Computed example of a mutant assay.
Amino acid sequence: MKIARRGELAPGKMKRVDHDGRRLLLANVDGKIHAADDTCTHEDASLSTGSLKGDIVKCPLHGSRFNLCTGQVLDDPAEENLRTYPVRVDGDDILVCLD
């Protein structure tokens, strides 16, 4: 499913996309696009307003960090991994499989 255009997401940047009632986080890590749920698994905080360092996103509320490649939680207080989604880039279109 087309979620965004590649030109909307510069390397090292991330953005929130609302699609069909889901809040998704898109991140451009060195030219590779990653997609995950935008809501921290600890509390209702938007990860897109946090910080991105490499493929690690840090929650702005309590500092939990997640690996965007695997969804693995790296720091407390979050204990549940982040759901990630397969991404394919077709030309300038960013396609995310939400199944």
Rank of each mutant, 00 (worst) to 15 (best):
residue 43 E to Q: 15
residue 67 N to G: 02
residue 56 I to D: 04
residue 98 L to Y: 05
residue 72 Q to C: 00
residue 49 T to I: 14
residue 46 S to V: 09
residue 59 C to R: 06
residue 43 E to N: 12
residue 50 G to H: 07
residue 49 T to V: 15
residue 63 G to K: 02
residue 90 D to V: 13
residue 91 G to T: 08
residue 72 Q to M: 10
residue 76 D to V: 11
residue 54 G to P: 11
residue 81 N to F: 08
residue 81 N to S: 15
residue 69 C to M: 06
residue 79 E to W: 10
residue 61 L to N: 14
residue 71 G to E: 01
residue 74 L to F: 04
residue 99 D to P: 10
residue 89 V to F: 08
residue 49 T to F: 12
residue 74 L to E: 14
residue 51 S to G: 13
residue 77 P to E: 09
residue 96 V to W: 00
residue 91 G to D: 07
residue 43 E to A: 15
residue 80 E to W: 14
residue 84 T to C: 11
residue 58 K to V: 09
residue 50 G to L: 02
residue 62 H to V: 11
residue 92 D to K: 06
residue 89 V to G: 07
residue 63 G to S: 12
residue 83 R to K: 15
residue 82 L to G: 02
residue 54 G to M: 11
residue 89 V to Y: 09
residue 91 G to Y: 12
residue 46 S to E: 06
residue 67 N to S: 12
residue 62 H to E: 14
residue 98 L to W: 00
residue 51 S to D: 14
residue 88 R to I: 09
residue 89 V to R: 06
residue 68 L to V: 03
residue 79 E to V: 15
residue 72 Q to K: 14
residue 92 D to M: 10
residue 63 G to P: 03
residue 73 V to H: 00
residue 93 D to N: 03
residue 77 P to C: 14
residue 44 D to H: 15
residue 86 P to I: 03
residue 94 I to G: 00
residue 54 G to T: 10
residue 51 S to I: 13
residue 96 V to E: 01
residue 78 A to P: 03
residue 80 E to P: 03
residue 95 L to T: 05
residue 68 L to G: 03
residue 68 L to W: 02
residue 73 V to W: 07
residue 59 C to H: 08
residue 61 L to V: 12
residue 65 R to W: 00
residue 50 G to K: 05
residue 72 Q to T: 11
residue 59 C to Y: 05
residue 72 Q to G: 01
residue 82 L to W: 05
residue 45 A to K: 03
